[in-house]
Nucleic acid binder design. Structure first.
Length: 335
DNA sequence: AATGCACTCAACCGCACATCT
DNA sequence: CAGATGTGCGGTTGAGTGCAT
């Protein structure tokens, strides 16, 4: 039963930095064989005294021909921060997928060495994207709004997951994509476009940094419909269990200009307008949803005064020029 | 020139999930 | 179906490097 171990620890396998000779062996093997095939058997076939895992890592993070070298530009850094705000630490690979030629390892390093420190210097917790405690003393009202925004964003994320889960069940013949991939694709898709339109029209926002305090009025970004049913329950449970990691990050950041603003709705009712899919046509559109259908457990303790602002950091994220297509739905249909 | 410190980043480690026997 | 293995991923480490003293 089973297979032999991947890496035989009894063999003296080399560790540490790769030599140019080793790189050449690995490159030659992969180019001659039009791919790596089994990573486990690769080292032996390629004549390398390395474990397959080490070979894979070397290929993915360094030798792959499509690796983009050189420093990250501002757009890339901004996108990483935005995506980290959406996804958190758990999905470096997903973030990397949005940056052609960049590896998860590279992005992770950039985050840990540069971006994280930059946020800290700005008084922002790089994990939660919330204001650090010291800043909260000066921005109590805003920080409390930030907490609400976290709930709003988490609700939006759950809604997206639930919707996509439902969609995937409708396209059950299609291969499953990862949850995060769904979310990113959703964000980049017409759904996101609709959402962008909604937020453009309806969202107001305030900056915890630029505005010392203000009374706020916000609704929930929790337009969860009863159609979601069990899928939603699953998502909700999942998110609850992994709250620390999956927690939606409410802020959107422009690190250069310290634009760091949460988003809000003008009214609670507006918050309940979100994605409603027309599954027959495979299209999404926005419609009114019943407030009573909102997901149980959603944070709803929002105060009800809000200051409008059309120039939001959210808009920066929403308008970021990500490829706006529905290819993932198309793929589903094709498969 | 020597030393210590901070920083970077390639690589390792261990876990989770998918796949195979 | 159970358990072993393969693969991918995030967290962490530590060697190399640059800078300050």
């Amino acid at each position: 039963m089973g297979r032999t171990p991947c890496c035989d620890n009894k063999k003296a396998l080399k560790k540490g930095p790769w030599s140019p000779e080793e790189d050449e062996l690995l490159l030659n093997y992969i180019s001659k064989n039009h791919g790596h095939g089994s990573w486990r058997s690769l080292p032996k076939l390629a004549g390398l005294q390395r474990c397959g895992k080490s070979c894979r890592l070397r290929w993915i993070n360094y030798l792959r021909p499509d690796i983009k070298r050189g420093p990250f530009n501002k757009d890339e850094e901004q996108l990483i921060i935005q995506l980290h705000g959406m996804l958190g630490n758990r999905w470096w690979a997903t973030i990397a997928s949005q940056l052609p030629g960049r590896t998860d390892n590279e992005i992770k390093n950039l985050w840990n060495t540069h971006l994280r420190k930059r946020l800290i210097a700005m008084g922002i917790d790089p994990q939660t994207h919330e204001l650090l405690a010291s800043n909260c003393l000066n921005h109590n009202a805003s920080a409390s709004a930030a907490t609400r925004h976290m709930a709003q964003w988490e609700s939006a994320r759950l809604e997206a997951e639930a919707r996509l889960s439902r969609e995937s069940s409708l396209f059950s013949h299609a291969p499953e994509k990862s949850e995060s991939d769904h979310f990113l694709r959703l964000w980049n898709s017409n759904v996101g476009k609709s959402f962008r339109k909604l937020t453009s029209d309806k969202f107001a926002c305030q900056s915890p940094i630029s505005q010392a305090s203000s009374s706020t009025k916000c609704g929930l970004l929790s337009a969860v419909t009863t159609e979601v049913g069990n899928n939603l329950t699953g998502s909700s449970t999942m998110a609850g269990n992994q709250n620390e990691d999956l927690a939606y990050r409410p802020f959107l950041i422009n690190t250069e200009d310290v634009e760091y603003k949460p988003f809000q709705f003008n009214t609670e009712e507006e918050g309940y307008k979100l994605f409603q899919s027309n599954t027959e046509a495979g299209e999404f559109k926005i419609c009114q949803t019943n407030t009573e259908d909102r997901m149980a457990g959603s944070v709803s303790s929002c105060s009800n005064d809000l200051e409008n602002s059309s120039d939001t950091a959210l808009q920066l994220l929403l308008d970021y020029p990500i490829n706006d297509d529905m290819s993932f739905l198309g793929n589903n249909a094709d498969d």
